[in-house]
Nucleic acid binder design. Structure first.
Lengths: 134, 134
DNA sequence: AATAATTATATCGTGCACGATGCAAATCCC
DNA sequence: GGGATTTGCATCGTGCACGATATAATTATT
């Protein structure tokens, strides 16, 4: 029953983040999306979706809500008018300052040490790659 | 960014199970719920929710759909008339025969060996317990 | 150049997941 | 025994996640 652990852990993580994020007016998936833009700004919807292993039909309304909050902007790509480039607004970028505290708080809550966290990441990545390609 | 791995792995697992489950007319959360009843029949809604770390507001409509499919039955507990006991129907119990094949297929797809799977389970359980109590 | 196939994104319908709220039954406390 | 509190479950509104479908722009083919 390996599915059970991931299923419940995912919900527990979501619920642990939520109180910190609601202070910022964010949901957990919205926060994860912003972290990708903090890493690299001005991405296509498809690029973001691929990193999250999600479909654009999930991402489009989520991005619309981030845009309504004034955290991102949607610009047409002049080279390919089909594409929509997602860019951080100044407010969206400023929110990055809050991230380290939240991450530290979460890592602390896991009660896992550095080696365990690293091993967990490795196992999850291997599992995801394996299942996604099978 | 430990949150990212769990977030995406959870979706990958869900998506890997889905084609096997749609053949049975089930969704992934419905399947997980049934596995708990295969382990132990006649459970309260709250008991099931606690094992899944979910709220009853999520479980109630899910159970209603399982009932509509004729896989479970809802009986009043004579001792405590607030409680609703969830019981497997014959059809719901018969579905258990399909489970081993699906599990084997999934475990195979992860490309993790027995020791890695066991370690993953341990780490996820420790993380869940830590975060849930912090 | 005209048509066909592909790609990027959006829209719609279903189902999960949560918090807030409501209600009835049980329990507590006096 | 009787009122306050707790417990078990349901309902409602919001947001995520998916597949199916639609539309427009690009690219490939003839």
């Amino acid at each position: 029953m390996f599915c059970y652990g991931i299923y419940t852990a995912s919900h527990v993580v979501n619920r642990a983040y939520t109180p910190h994020l609601t202070r910022l007016g964010l949901t957990y998936p919205q926060y994860i999306t912003l972290t990708l833009l903090w890493e690299r700004d001005a991405q296509m919807v498809t690029e973001i979706a691929a990193q999250l292993r999600m479909t654009t039909s999930t991402l489009t309304p989520l991005l619309k809500r981030l845009e309504t909050q004034g955290l991102i902007e949607r610009c047409q790509d002049t080279r390919d008018r089909r594409s929509v480039l997602i860019r951080l607004s100044p407010r969206g970028r400023a929110l990055q300052n809050e991230a380290p505290d939240i991450t530290a708080c979460m890592v602390d809550g896991t009660t896992l040490d550095g080696a365990e966290l690293h091993e967990l990441q490795r196992l999850l990545a291997k599992l995801s790659d394996g299942l996604a390609s099978s």
